[in-house]
Structures are given as C-alpha cells and as structure tokens.
Computed example of a mutant assay.
Amino acid sequence: MKNIGPDRRLRVGVVGCAEIAGRRTLPAMVANPDIEVVAIASRDEGRAREFTDRFGGSPLKGYSALIDREDVDAIYNPLPLLLHAEWTERALTAGKHVLVEKPMTDSHKESSRLIELARAKGLVLMENYMFLHHSQHSEVRRMVDGGAIGELRGFSAAFTFPPKPAGDIRYQPGVGGGAFLDFGGYPVKVAMYFLGNDLRIGGAVFREHRDFGAVLSGEVLLYTPAGITAHLSFGMEHSYRNSYRLIGSTGRLLLDWVFTPPETHRPVVRVERQDHREEFVLRADHQFANAISAFVHAVRTGQDLRPQHEDALEQITLLEGIQRQAAHIRV
C-alpha cells in the first residue's frame, strides 16, 4: 500500500468543479489539518480559478494536467458519472489514491476493474457515500437491534427533489444523468445497511422523460430471503423528502434528514408504538468531514477496504438488476 506517513499532509487534487465539491466536500477538505488542496482542474480555467480563490491550490485547465502532477498524492473525483471510470482509472494508473463520488461507476464490470487496479497498485479507492459516515445511522441500528420496535418487519426510504432547472445534467441520460443512479442509489444503499446485502428485486417502476428518456422518478420493492420488504422512492419531480422508516412487530421508527443533514442538525429519532410515542435527540455530526477523515485514515494506514469494495459491487449489481427489471413509463 502506498500510504502517507504522519509527517506531512495528504496532497489532494480535484478533477472538476461540481456543485457538491464546492458546497460541501471542499469546505470539509480545507478544514482538515491533514489535507492540502494542491490544485483544482476544470475544462474552463476560469471556473477552476473561482474554486482555487475559495479553497486554495493552483487552477488548471484540463484534467490531464492535474493527473500528471508529481506533487499530488490523491485525487477527488466529483465528475459526472459517465466520466468516473475514465478519470479514476487514469488517476490510479498514475499512482494516485482516489476518492470518487457515488456511484463509483454505472456497472459491476467497470467498478470491479477499478477495484482490482487499485489493489494491484496498492492504492486506496473509496466510493463517497458520505451519509454512511453520520453517527445517526449506527445509533438507529443500535436501537433497532436492542428491540426498540420489536422484530423488524419492513423498511421504507425516500429521497426526492423538486424538478431541476432545464438543461440540468440529470436530464441527460447519455452523460450519466437521470434520477436513479444519482438519487436512487441512496435509498438502496441505506436498505442494504439495515437489511443486509442479500436483497432480491420484487419490482420497480421508473417514470422517464418522454423527450429525453432520462429517469425522472421511481419506486422500487426489494425483499430479503426472510420476506422483509424495502419500499424505496426516489425522484426529481416531487416535494423534498429525505427520510426512512423501520417497521417492527411492536412499533415503528422514523428519521428525517437521513442523507443530507447540515453539520449543525441534531437528528430526532421518533419511536411510535400503539400506546405511546418517544423522541430521542441525537448529537449533531459532520458526515462530510467524517468521510474525508476516513479517506485520509485509509491512505495513512493502508486500511484494507475489501469490505467496502464488496458492498460497492453488491450495490451496483443490485442497481443494474433494478434497471433491467423496472417497468419504464414515458411521461
């Protein structure tokens, strides 16, 4: 493993000036004392300069100029999904660790190839499902395992947004747009977190844009071998929803702001039973800062990421299966 010792900061380069990078990830990076943002690349040098004025580092025109730099240890890749595989592969080939936004790629074949390349080169490759780094989910799992709602019988989750502006990349399926891989992966990921990786597909319905073909929204039904169901909703033609619910034999547990809580937000877990209701206020947490710290730790220690890689491959296989089996309705 090509790790970085404690004597110096991890030197990071950023390919692309995505909204998520500027709004959440880069602020967490520059606040981390173990990271130095060395350079930020964009196809538009002016855009790169806007980012470096805010976050530091050198502005670069073109992604290759960043990949080739010898003073960069690791690459953060928030590019559109269609470009994940290409630029993650190029970074790994150049000997850089990679933190790539979710999903790693749009296929099991591509994700598996990148994982094998990272292992062969002794490099860290981490998929950035940042919400998993928030402590609220482990606390909910502790409560459920402790019998707060009896035996688990079902699960539901929703991640939905109002329509995006015309021209938004998510309306362009040819560049990895559409709501399913962008938003739909979150409910699927959290269902796997609570129900395990051995989820089967009961059915799915996707609503697609009649002109562009991009997936606008959908509903997915999954189930475990024991018959515990997961009802998942996603989309970009709804009111905003960002929640999950666990249904048990004696009650139910509900939590809002499960995927994108601000770092100042104190989660409120609601547990409802037939004759009473309880609320538990949890501590605030910073999932972006935690995700960045986890990446730095993996690089510094040479952490074995096989469990995370196996989860990533299980999920992309499930996502591919859902896409194949879904009824696609043009609207």
Rank of each mutant, 00 (worst) to 15 (best):
M1E: 12
K2V: 12
N3F: 12
N3H: 12
L10G: 01
V14W: 05
G16R: 00
A21L: 11
G22K: 10
R23I: 05
L26H: 03
M29Y: 12
V30T: 15
P33N: 06
I35G: 02
I35Y: 03
T52D: 07
P59C: 10
L60G: 02
I67R: 00
D73E: 11
Y76H: 05
N77L: 06
P78H: 00
P78E: 07
L79T: 15
P80H: 08
A85R: 04
W87D: 12
T88V: 14
R90F: 03
L99M: 15
E101H: 07
D106K: 04
S112K: 12
L117D: 00
N128T: 04
S135F: 06
S138D: 11
M143P: 07
M143K: 10
G147K: 01
E151H: 11
R153D: 03
G154T: 10
F155E: 10
A157I: 14
A158M: 11
F159K: 13
K164Q: 10
D168H: 14
Y171P: 06
G176Q: 05
G176D: 03
G176I: 03
D182W: 07
F183D: 06
G184R: 01
G185E: 03
K189Y: 15
A191P: 11
Y193Q: 10
Y193R: 06
Y193N: 08
F206M: 10
R207F: 12
H209I: 06
R210K: 13
D211I: 15
F212H: 10
V215P: 02
L216Y: 01
G218V: 03
L221R: 14
L221W: 08
L222N: 09
G227D: 04
G227Y: 02
I228R: 10
A230M: 07
F234P: 04
M236S: 08
Y240F: 15
Y240D: 05
R241D: 10
N242P: 06
Y244D: 07
R245Q: 12
L246N: 08
L253V: 06
L255A: 08
T260G: 08
P261V: 10
E263L: 10
T264W: 11
T264P: 01
H265D: 06
P267D: 09
V268L: 08
V269A: 01
R270W: 08
V271C: 07
R277E: 13
R283E: 14
A289V: 08
N290Q: 05
V296G: 04
L305A: 04
R306C: 07
R306S: 13
P307F: 10
A312Q: 05
A312P: 02
T317M: 04
T317Q: 13
L319D: 01
L319F: 09
I322Q: 01
R324C: 04
